[in-house]
Structure formats: structure tokens, C-alpha cells
């Protein structure tokens, strides 16, 4: 999932100050699963902003709502009439959702209520960690299912650096050295010799370094 985190309330209040009629729009997929931008969180934020506005005697109704996904044009289209009646939309979706909303409603002020973090997994309730950098050319078959692009601080391709100590990355003892994990996993699978194959210099264009990416499925598009 894409993990998002709600911005600090102070920041949100600052961004929405003086912005008139405000729609706090939740997203019921990744943002909700991150427990940061679902309907519940949208409602809570709406009440908080209302209390803040009352306190500072600011005018402007604040309403909460949510749609299934803000990254799908059909869902966004369904709230067209609703959004028309607002001045500003505070979107709690990931960056993709915020942008589609802004694209669809170019005459409205659209503000992000969350910071989009990473592609990751849930460790337990309330804890998520990064797993995938979206590099566009998955090599997990060669590294025993562990990604050195997402999880290595230096994004090294051919083994650990000299800073790897007791299985931990030199940036922090709370971060595992993914190359240690790769070596351990491949050993366990009796495939350590896979590391003898040297990775060539990576073409980073599929990772977005050559410009924004787009996927086209010719077999699917109408």
C-alpha cells in the first residue's frame, strides 16, 4: 500500500486559514488503511477545524466526506456537484489523489492534508515500513525477495558497503542492512552463488529519473 501520514494540525490550520467553505475529503483506500485519511479521520479533522475557526471567529462552513479512491476519474466525477459548492478542498489522499482532484477542479483551491511516504507493508497495527521504490525494473528474483533499492541507504547493487555492522545499516541501528538480509536469505535458499552475477549499471529511466512515467496497455485501452 501507499502509506500516508496526516500533516501536523498547525500546518493544516495555516493552509486552510481564510479559505472559505471547506470540504475535507477523505480517501477510502490507502489513506484510510494508513489510518490517516479515511472518513473517520476526515470527520475528526473537520470538527477540529470548525472548533479552530469558531475560536478565531473565522467564517466558512467545514464539511467532511470521502470517496473510494481519489486517483480514479469516475469516483472524482461523482462528487463534481458537491465540490462546486465549496471554495477549497482539503484532500487527505496520497499525492496522486490530490493531483487528480486539482486537475478535475482547476478553479478550486486544493490543499494536501497528508504527506505521502512510501510503498510499504504493515508490520502491526500503526506501524508500516518501506519496501518498494517503484524503480520500474524489479530484481527481487536475484536478491531473494529483498529490495536493495528501497531498503539500502546507498541503493547499492552488489553487496554491502563497509558500514554494515552486525547486520545493521550505518545510518541507524534500527535499520537492518538489507544486504545482510539478502545474503542470509540466499544462503538459506542455498543460492548464494547468485550474487556472483554482477549487476550492470542501472538504467534509471524506468525509475522516473528520466521524467514522469506512464504505463500504456495497448491490449486494454479503448
Amino acid at each position: 500500500m501507499i502509506t500516508v501520514e496526516q500533516k501536523e494540525l498547525e500546518k493544516i490550520l495555516e493552509m486552510t486559514k481564510g479559505r472559505g467553505r471547506l470540504l475535507v475529503l477523505g480517501c477510502e483506500t490507502c489513506a484510510a488503511m494508513s489510518l490517516a485519511g479515511g472518513k473517520k479521520q476526515a470527520e475528526e479533522l473537520a470538527v477540529a477545524i470548525r472548533v479552530g475557526r469558531k475560536q478565531s471567529k473565522e467564517e466558512g462552513e467545514v464539511v467532511a466526506d470521502a470517496i473510494a479512491r481519489q486517483c480514479e476519474p469516475e469516483f472524482v466525477a461523482l462528487i463534481e456537484k458537491e465540490v462546486a459548492s465549496f471554495d477549497t478542498v482539503l484532500s487527505l489522499a496520497c499525492g496522486a489523489g490530490v493531483q487528480l482532484i486539482a486537475e478535475r477542479f482547476p478553479d478550486k483551491v486544493v490543499i494536501p492534508g497528508c504527506n505521502t511516504s512510501f510503498l510499504g507493508v504493515t508490520e502491526k497495527l500503526g506501524v508500516w515500513s518501506e519496501r518498494c521504490a517503484g524503480c520500474g525494473n524489479c530484481i527481487l528474483d536475484k536478491t531473494g525477495g529483498l529490495c536493495p533499492i528501497a531498503r539500502c541507504a546507498k541503493q547499492l547493487f552488489n553487496g554491502p558497503c563497509g558500514g554494515s555492522t552486525n547486520g545493521k545499516c550505518e545510518i541507524s541501528k534500527d535499520v537492518d542492512c538489507v544486504w545482510q538480509l539478502i545474503i542470509d536469505r540466499l544462503t538459506r535458499l542455498d543460492r548464494l552463488e547468485a550474487l556472483e552475477e554482477i549487476f550492470p549499471v542501472k538504467d534509471w529511466s524506468p525509475a522516473g529519473h528520466g521524467g514522469p512515467r506512464r504505463v500504456v496497455r495497448e491490449d486494454l485501452e479503448p
Binding site: A32, M33, L35, G38, K39, K40, A66
Partner: peptide, 12 residues
Amino acid sequence: ACGMCAMECPVR
């Protein structure tokens, strides 16, 4: 009926 799940469900 303790209410915890209803409370914490992010999509109500």
C-alpha cells in the same frame, strides 16, 4: 458489543 472496532474503523 464493546464498540472498539466501530470506533476505530477508518471508513465507518
